[in-house]
Amino acid sequence: MKWYEAISKIDRRIIYLCLTIFIILPFFVPFKLRQNIMPQTQQLFDFVESIPPRDKAVMISFDYTPQTMPECHPMAIALLKHCFARNIPVVGLSFDIQAPGLAVEALTTVVDELNHKASNHEDSLFYGKDYVYLGWKSGFTAAVLDMGESIAGVFPRDYFGHPVDSLPLMQKTRNYKDVAIAIVLSASAYPEYWVLYPQSRYGVKIGAGLTAVMAPKYYPFLQTGQFSGMMSGMKGAAEYEHLIVEKGYAEKLGRAETGMNSQSIVHLLIIIIIILGNIGFFFTRKDQKRS
């Protein structure tokens, strides 16, 4: 077999092996790539940056599942770090039945990390005062609409069973009027419905964190201003991590950065094999024409 025939017919198992190596490599050999920040990620970061500290809360709707965790979970972690670093209270909730476990994990990870570093009582984060997780609720449409009147009416008790009215943060976060922005982290159609129902009725600002495959569908929402920013896939999460590190809200980059390194070099690998395939194809065709 000639060299150009060989490169146009690489065995798929060789491609899979290379892919595995390229995915795993960045986890053991860390390196840093400068992220070019997409305008929609910058827009979301700037919005959160503009919220006054200890004032209105950021509502995060954790609506992703274990399948889409690698893309959406780092977004949640980066967002939480940003909010807590700026003393912005966070109200979490979920409408996807598979999400609560992941939401609690994200909150616990960030709170434990920050409390570990806290030098005094003032710097520490407290449940009920700085953050709350309301848990899961069925009947999405009715619930998001009713929260415009009363959040405690929709979630009488939080995920851990506390009466929501008894939590200091929820006493001052009664409805969307007390929410600076609702950020929906999802791999499905939830962000669209947040725009359709609570935004059109109560004017609540909406941000989104979406898997890369879903993001193209939502570009028009950015163009019309219905989204106040968006993180798109693992790249969006990595960009947000870069932004919070640049501003000094976090010391080191998170998982998305490592994931993005894997993704970037895997993309590079795919580009290389496509080029190889085309070189092989070009010479094979030339050969065939000649003969």
Binding site: L19, T65, Q67, N278, F282
Partner: peptide, 30 residues
Amino acid sequence: LNVLAPLGSTMFALLAYYMASAAYRSFRAR
């Protein structure tokens, strides 16, 4: 959560491999 969800994630993750091999095979300047 501990059996079905990880199995689902594993199947979903296979996409990365299949995307690479499908891209290699079909992206030719024909």
